[in-house]
Structure formats: C-alpha cells, structure tokens
C-alpha cells in the first residue's frame, strides 16, 4: 500500500513537471487564454449585473450574492478543469484506438487518464479566485473558522461532482462512438442552471438539480449557508450546504463504478 502510494506520488509529480514545462513552452498562449476565459465569464456576469440593475432582486438574491453564487461554481469548475480535464479526451482516445495503451501500463486506468500530460494554464483558476475574493467581500460573507475550514472542502467536493458527471459522459463513449454533443450540452446546461438560485425553478427542476445532477451542491446550498439565507427551494436545514464534500465523494464513487462497467465492456468481458 505504502509502496503504491509512493509510485502514485512519483507519477503525479512527474506529470505536473511535464505540464509546467509544456505550459512554459507555450507561454505566449497564456495571455490569449487569459483574455478568452475572462471575456467568457465577464459576459455571464455582466448579463447578471444588467438584469439586477433593472430588477431589485431575484427571489431575494441581489447582485453581490449572485456573484458569490457564481464564483463558488466557477471555483469548483476551474479546479475540475485543472485537475481532471483529460477525462474529456477519453472519447477521442477510444475512437482512435489510443485507449489500448492504458491497459498495457501497470497503473490504475483512471489515474493514468488523469495524469495524461496536457497544456494547462491557471487562467481560469486565477480568475475564479479573484472573483471569489471580491464577491466574498462584496456580499458581506463573514469569514470565520467555518468558512476557512469548509470552503476548501466544498470547492473540492464541487469539483468532484463536476468530475463525476464528466466521467459518466466519457464512459458512455465505450458504447456510443460520438458523445461530443452530449458533452457540450451537459456543460451548457450546467453553467446556465448553476447561475441562478435553484429556488427560482419549478419543483421538478429543483429535485433534479439536487438529487439527479447535484449541481445545486456545487454552489446553491453552500452559498445559502454562508450568506445566512433561508433555504427556500426544498426547505432543508441550512447545514445541507456543508454536505457538498460528502455528495462529491458519493458522486465520484457512483461514477467510478460506472467507469469500471465501461472498462469491462471495452475489454469485451463475457464475449
């Protein structure tokens, strides 16, 4: 066990070494990506701001609170994009036969996928952190020990939720050749539905966003807890907002179980 952990640690270190070197090789692209990501998130936030200039609130949420809601999602999402991005390349690897390689190396298949070197820039992470700090000050969230202990856990849990959903979509490619459209739509819906407090949705949508595709745990529940708002979507205890790390783990375990089924399918077990 200790030996295996040492190997994983060594691989992970080498993997990040390669990522950093690759990023340095293409450092000119960094500014381009920075601008790109900035404009993307800025247009979303500007749209919210404009609406809340005209309307005093959205179900009792003002703009700084909505910005806090957005920044929590963005933080979790950018962590996912930094740590687990390559899961999205699985469908392409499967299509082109590249995926075979995973089986001829003496390492857990998913860990190999996660440690496939790539071009990663911290652009989104930097922007997410900046927005998070701004929105925290702006919305008047009290920074106490609850905040300091739970925010990192919640962000990691949120990233795991994001990762689990991407993993399920990637696993679908063991059965269906093209899952690009599915992936694109899932992403679009994720970022549109996490933008608003789920209390504005109809009952069915609230339940879906809580239990089926638990995006609400990425930002809505934690945000209501830290903003001291009444949770008026499902009338749950405000402490539900602290369950995100647990929900993230459960999602990951379920997604991983599905992934194993997918691997068996790929290897043609039973036929």
């Amino acid at each position: 066990m200790a030996e295996r952990l040492a190997i994983w640690g060594d691989v992970y270190r080498q993997y990040w070494r390669i990522n950093v070197l690759t990023a340095l090789e293409y450092r000119a692209n960094f500014l381009v990506w920075f601008g790109f990501t900035f404009i993307y998130h800025a247009t979303a936030l500007i749209a919210l701001w404009i609406i809340l200039q005209e309307f005093p609130s959205m179900n009792g949420w003002n703009f700084p609170q909505m910005a806090f809601l957005y920044s929590l999602w963005m933080l979790a999402h950018s962590i996912n994009n930094t740590l687990f991005l390559t899961v999205g390349d699985v469908p392409e690897h499967v299509r082109e036969g590249e995926f075979d390689r995973v089986f001829v190396r003496p390492l857990n298949a998913l860990f190999q996928i996660i440690t496939t070197p790539q071009q990663i820039f911290p652009d989104e992470l930097i922007l997410a952190l900046s927005l998070f700090v701004l929105a925290t000050i702006w919305s008047g969230v009290t920074v106490d020990w609850w905040f300091v202990v739970f925010i990192p856990l919640i962000v990691m849990g949120g990233a795991l939720i994001d990762f689990a959903i991407n993993l399920v979509i990637a696993t679908c490619s063991f059965w269906f050749v093209r899952v690009d459209a599915l992936r694109w739509i899932a992403f679009q819906l994720e970022q549109e539905f996490t933008r608003y407090p789920i209390s504005i949705y109809t009952k069915g949508v609230r339940l879906v966003l809580t239990f089926l595709l638990p995006f609400a745990f990425m930002n809505y529940f934690p945000a209501t807890f830290f903003l001291d708002k009444a949770e008026d979507a499902l009338h749950l205890s405000p402490f539900v907002g602290l369950a995100t790390p647990l929900v993230g783990l459960v999602c990951f375990v379920l997604a991983y179980w599905f992934w194993i089924i997918g691997l068996n399918k790929y290897q043609g077990v039973g036929h």
Partner: peptide
C-alpha cells in the same frame, strides 16, 4: 511498441517522457 502511435509527449524532449515512464513502471 505501436508503430503508428507514439507514447512520447509531443511538446517536450524525450527525457521528460522517459522520466514519466520511469515513475509509472517504478
């Protein structure tokens, strides 16, 4: 060895790919 598919990392010198493989195979 798959003749048509490389396991080397495109953007970096050979050395770096070797280091990662060293770690993977311990």
């Amino acid at each position: 060895v798959f003749g048509q598919r490389s396991q080397l990392y495109w953007d970096l010198p050979l050395q770096e790919s070797f280091e990662l493989l060293r770690a993977i195979y311990a």
